[in-house]
Design a protein around this nucleic acid. Structure first.
Lengths: 130, 130
DNA sequence: CTAAACCTTGGTGTGAGCTCCAAGGCAAAC
DNA sequence: GTTTGCCTTGGAGCTCACACCAAGGTTTAG
């Protein structure tokens, strides 16, 4: 598949696809005889994966590391699987962070009149358990 | 409180505090007779709020709008309260996005052997209900 | 066969979000 | 009262994550 089609399929620009490949966010894409990128289904899978994880706020740095390890290092089934689990853990931490902030906002809305009381009070609401 | 102390308290740089104020992410801070910023407890509260929401991934743009409305426009209790609720909604959407992605990763780990099957299959796992 | 419509690389531009620096004023310590 | 250190503003510099452009090769449509 040509870059144009991939871009359309995932609603990305061609520039972004080339950029992602350049910085290692995507594996090097195979070229046809004229030097044009030819995306396989497998490549598309990567594009999709990156796109989804980026949308969820995963850092580019982590994703590059993931792609790198996944391709070069972890050759075994289990190693690769555990890399996925690592990604999941990272994301779960982000979710926890957001959840904490939601609790904080709930507190703020609830105890709305105390908004000006002081951030120490608020910090308790933020750090506090559910 | 002086800028240095505030910076230390929240583990931010002085430059960041000034930057945030400049772009409207913080209200204008009162100055003492020598023109130095003098942060009140109320200001600290704002700093804390901004920091927490930023850490959770809330966009600066949204936060600037929030600070602006909160200070200038919405003078009534209820209006201000509903602004907070809006912030909460935005954050809840981010949480939902992450949650969807977690489900996707769970699927990927579970059906790990099909990793190369094709992204359409994966898209179903991502878009699908819990 | 030529023109339009692709593709390539390399380089430059852009906006966000800081970060650092210079020049100069105030303040606390000796 | 001067040195040291903190503060101010204005502006320049920097990194990230693209977006855009130019020059040149290829493929396709007429």
């Amino acid at each position: 598949m040509k870059i144009e089609e991939v871009a359309r399929e995932f609603d990305l620009t061609k520039d972004t696809l080339r950029y992602w490949e350049r910085i290692g966010l995507l594996p090097p894409i195979r070229r046809n005889t004229s030097g044009y990128r030819d995306y396989t289904e497998h490549d598309m899978n990567w594009v999709y994966y990156i796109q989804v994880l980026r949308k969820a706020g995963m850092s580019i740095e982590s994703l590059i590391e993931f792609v790198k390890l996944f391709r070069d290092g972890a050759q075994t089934r289990e190693a690769r699987k555990s890399l996925l689990a690592d990604q999941r853990t990272q994301l779960a931490q982000q979710e926890a962070e957001i959840h904490k902030t939601l609790k904080y906002l709930d507190y703020k809305i609830e105890h709305w009149d105390d908004h000006m009381l002081g951030y120490e009070t608020e910090r308790l609401a933020y750090e506090g358990k559910d």
